[in-house]
Design a protein around this nucleic acid. Sequence first.
DNA 1: GTTGTTTCGGAGAATTTTATCCGAAATCAT
DNA 2: ATGATTTCGGATAAAATTCTCCGAAACAAC
Lengths: 155, 155
Amino acid sequence: MILSRTSQYAVQALIFIATRPPGEPVLNREIASYLDVPPAYLAKIMQSLCKGSLLYSFRGRLGGFCLREGAEKTDLMKILLLTEGAGFTQDCVLGLKVCSDATACPMHAKWVPIKKKVVSLLTDQTLEKLARAVQTGKYRLTDLPASLFAPVRRT
Amino acid sequence: MILSRTSQYAVQALIFIATRPPGEPVLNREIASYLDVPPAYLAKIMQSLCKGSLLYSFRGRLGGFCLREGAEKTDLMKILLLTEGAGFTQDCVLGLKVCSDATACPMHAKWVPIKKKVVSLLTDQTLEKLARAVQTGKYRLTDLPASLFAPVRRT
DNA sequence: GTTGTTTCGGAGAATTTTATCCGAAATCAT
DNA sequence: ATGATTTCGGATAAAATTCTCCGAAACAAC
């Protein structure tokens, strides 16, 4: 039912980058602060997304990360295969190592159709689409700022 | 997409008990060895299922665990609420603390219907049904024994 | 009562996941 | 060149999950 934090951060970050003008590197620091996630941890995730061929990275001044050409068409499934590991959609609900049509757990038959729906949704949703949904202002990528709930703290 | 190991063990164990004659306590040791899960860890989980009012426990000789009266009608949703914690079906895919119809992540709208399907499936599947499915022999609760793959080891 | 069995409950170890730190390499501006 | 900035890569720490151990309490059989 739940993605790892790593996956959540990765998807959030990628969508965020997709909302920015393409080609202009975005700083890890900026992404982390916008999403309100640990910068050093996010940096690790960004690294692995680079190795996964979704991002370009640039060091030094004017550095940062930006989407590889065409990466806007990347669907969530591809991203999650990177972050959750292959076969994350094949895992048995009850944890059986082998659970196929041939030899299945008692949930298998009813679970498969749902799994299919999930996969097709994940495959349908691309960074482009999600970024656009955010840009309309109808959907949000981050929690409402804490400042709305907590009193202002001056430095 | 995945349940915690704790949840998987809990569900497996409960289904197993449901396949046994009601009222006759089943030993933790027996469950653990049948399911091939760590006995001491399973024992902890069994304890929490007792506290969750699904099981009776008996100490000493003729001891063990058995389903509480009517617990065969328990659906998976109830069990998972115990083991995963309340609101495990409400969590946002992207990890937002608040993600409702009012203020949502870009996946929310498409995700909600799937979540509903999952919940209704989990609510539909009771220990009784699952146990019966196993008893027909058509579905399995455990992995195929390793002895089928590994050479026999004599003691 | 004594013995053997089984769960209970608490403490703690091992593993995995999440998060931090820091020196080094790359890059740009001066 | 020098300095400022930023990612890279490795080591390490913290937290959560999974797993183990052990003494105590409850229970049955003798």
